[in-house]
Write a protein that binds this DNA or RNA. Structure first.
Length: 706
DNA sequence: GCGATCAGGT
DNA sequence: CACACCTGATCGC
């Protein structure tokens, strides 16, 4: 639930998603979506009075949100004060103080948030910088990178602050199955039931809130059965939804509600009162969409679980998972982040601990706070002494999977790489120009991403150790590099040439280039072949739960208790693995169908959700495009290349945009003073270590010596 | 009578 | 587990 107070530090003249207290004095109002917890005060008498006496104050929202809001008579009084802004259309807004006449202009852009129909994020650009208010959002990994308006030219805009939906910002919500996965699971369950006889019906026990519409649409499209709802006047101008829902009870899929709809637990009675059809009693199953999450080491991502004889839970989430949040924020890399939501067991401090490392300001501060020695020790200590299994892969530790992704990531997300390298190496940006070498910081960031790209594997010891090793490797140079700001010189560059680079070392083992892009789309590419050095060990660990899948009597049925999801390994109904296999065997037609349906959701949800295949190729194009343009940009902007891998920046206003060449990664990181005990790794030693890593061997001990 | 808040429920 | 919402009790205006 949103705890956002309504106002952003940078633009306090506007109020977003809160309409009480101080917000009554705002010069403009913004509503991100139509959920009650974002509408506090929106129909209060105080605000109503203000609107009556004001000609200028407006409420800005997406066209769909406007429609949904005005359908509710309680909000009808807003009618002449709402301005619907088209999504992804930057709009200049004058914020006028009606009392003083004082004026401030901001440009606002609505970006699709994927939370519910009409949900958007607000991007504000003006004198006080660029800030992003996410509202509530669910964006898959990589979606931020695909949002054109988050970019300026080829790189991410310089975003000062992000006001972030942190609902699931906790490592325990590490993974939530993708929208497509969940959809498929529900679809197959519903299909298998309602195709038995015409009297087999399904009740979708949805909350009284917007956000399930794409589920209804997809079920209806796939199965040719409309979904029964209590009312649908709010969709009267949304044919994409309207076509798939009905007020006719005589349908096999219901999402109707009743104040006492637990009557449904009495057999075969629907909330709408239906108990039989043509004199024959109904056979009812209940599917309750609910958020299911998986810690990152839990690999069996069942999206449907049977909870009783005729009751099921289906995975469904309105909010981004922890790994999706991380992907989003680490791509944007704002200077500041402010959580809009406190996760349940969490405190503001705890959330900030998780978010800060993904921001620019923290990196600078961290470098100031921790002297080089301290940083190095800290990184090592945490890696090696942390014996808490649950924490083993949390947060930063998750960053280090020994996948050969660096190059790939670099190609598809240049700004992310550039930023992280910068932030790792720069400190006082306002007084001098900088030379930055690319450092292992980027490696770390890369791994942070790629480990999510196949979270369906490896919980075994061997892999864990590999993880640890990789973490060590990626962290230490990182830590080292943080000391760079005091000692980088350009001649450190030269000596790097004969030192093996992690990515280059393994380059020959990599699959063909085109598969690189797949790694950016984990939800659709999980079933893909080996993309990593460790695909073998992945395979081995996979086998451990294949057997448990087979132990289910069929691909669909098993019982479960009501404990946490993580302990329900054997109650899997439909696993992602199974479904992925299904997709593969069907030549991907299934994926295509679902993707297409998702497209239909687009106008309502405002999501630029293209079919996955399209997304991929699109992303691929963008990636290539970005890369080539990036080069130009560096040349014509305020950055100048100084040698290979060193960039000198003279633009003080945008120092964080330093973009060292990715391929500049070199051993120069090692050649600055280290901790007293530390030694500079010799090329031979690096080669040796890489070899061991490639073989999946544990070299942690040797690392300690290092 | 209305709204805000809280507790308790799904 | 959680979300987003509803209902009902209580309090203050």
């Amino acid at each position: 639930m949103s705890r956002f107070g309504g106002r952003m530090r940078e633009y306090p003249a506007v109020s977003i998603d809160r309409f009480d207290h101080d917000n009554l004095l705002a010069r403009a109002y913004f509503l991100s979506h139509c959920h009650k917890d974002h509408m506090k005060g929106l129909r209060a008498p105080a605000l109503r009075r203000r609107m009556k006496s004001s000609l200028k104050v407006k409420l800005y929202c997406s066209p769909v949100t406007k429609e949904l809001l005005l359908t509710n008579w309680k909000y009808r009084f807003w009618e002449n004060h709402i301005v619907a802004l088209e999504v992804e259309t930057p709009t200049q807004i004058s914020l006028v103080d009606e009392a003083t006449g004082e004026k401030e202009d901001v440009e606002v852009t609505l970006l699709p948030a994927g939370h519910c129909p009409g949900s958007v994020m607000f991007l504000f650009e003006g004198e006080n910088g660029t800030v992003l208010y996410t509202g509530d959002f669910r964006l898959a990994k990589g979606e931020a990178a695909r949002m054109e308006l988050l970019h300026s030219g080829t790189r991410v805009k310089d975003i000062q602050s992000v006001y972030l939906d942190t609902t699931f910002c906790d490592p325990k919500f590490y993974h939530i199955p993708s929208r497509e996965e969940c959809l498929k699971g529900i679809l197959e369950l519903v299909r298998s039931w309602i195709s038995l006889t015409r009297n087999h019906v399904v009740w979708l026990n949805c909350k009284a809130a917007y956000g399930y519409e794409y589920l209804f649409i997809n079920l209806s499209e796939e199965l040719g059965v409309k979904v029964h709802m209590n009312k649908l006047d709010m969709f009267r101008n949304m044919p994409e939804i309207l076509y798939h829902v009905t007020t006719d009870q005589h349908t096999q899929i219901h999402a109707c509600r009743h104040p006492r709809d637990d009557d449904c637990f009495r057999w075969n009675r629907l909330p709408c009162g239906m108990t039989c059809q043509n004199g024959t009693p109904l056979h009812l199953i209940i599917i309750k969409p609910s958020t299911m999450w998986f810690g990152e080491r839990i690999k069996k991502t069942s999206v449907i679980v049977r909870t009783g004889e005729s009751t099921y839970r289906a995975c469904f989430s309105f909010h981004s998972s922890y790994s999706e949040i991380k992907d989003f924020l680490s791509y944007i890399q704002p200077v500041n982040v402010y959580p809009n939501v406190l996760p349940v067991g969490g405190t503001e401090e705890k959330v900030m601990e998780l978010l800060k490392p993904l921001c620019r300001s923290y990196r600078r501060n961290a470098e100031l706070r921790y002297k080089p020695l301290g940083t190095l020790k800290r990184a090592c200590k945490r890696d090696l002494s942390d014996t808490d299994e649950d924490d083993l892969f949390d947060s930063e530790l998750t960053a280090a999977r020994p996948k050969i992704l660096k190059q790939q990531r670099g190609e598809s997300r240049p700004s992310s790489i550039a930023r992280s390298e910068n932030t790792g190496g720069n400190n006082d940006e306002s007084t001098e120009s900088y030379r930055t070498t690319a450092t292992y910081t980027s490696l770390k960031v890369d791994f942070m991403d790629c480990e999510e790209s196949n979270d369906d594997d490896e919980d075994d010891e061997e892999e864990s150790q590999n993880n640890m090793v990789a973490e060590v490797l990626s962290q230490e140079p990182d830590a080292t590099s943080t000391s760079n700001f005091s000692g980088v010189t350009s001649d450190q560059q030269e000596s790097s040439s004969d030192v093996p680079r992690w990515d280059m070392f393994f380059k020959c083992d990599r699959p063909e280039e085109t598969s690189d892009i797949e790694d950016n789309f984990p939800s659709s590419a999980d079933a893909g072949g080996s993309q990593s050095l460790f695909s073998d060990s992945d395979g081995v660990s996979d086998s451990t739960h294949i057997s448990s899948q087979n132990s289910s009597q069929s691909t669909h049925i098993s019982e479960q208790g009501s404990q946490g999801w993580d302990s329900q390994m054997d109650t899997v109904l439909i696993t992602t693995q199974e479904r992925n296999a299904l997709d593969t065997s069907r030549g991907g037609s299934r994926t295509a169908a679902v993707s297409q349906d998702t497209t239909k959701y687009t106008p309502l949800d405002s999501r630029p959700c293209k079919p996955l295949s399209q997304n991929r190729s699109c992303a691929h194009d963008v990636a290539c495009d970005l890369k080539s343009k990036d080069t130009e940009k560096d040349a014509d902007a305020s950055t100048t290349h100084v040698g290979d891998g060193v960039v000198e920046v003279s633009d003080n206003s945008r120092t964080m945009d330093l973009e060292p060449r990715r391929d500049s990664q070199s051993s120069s990181d090692f050649e600055i003073p280290l901790t007293p005990d530390a030694e500079v790794p010799q090329p031979e030693k690096l080669r040796y270590l890489y070899k061991k890593l490639a073989a999946g061997e544990n070299i942690v001990c040797e690392k300690r010596v290092f």
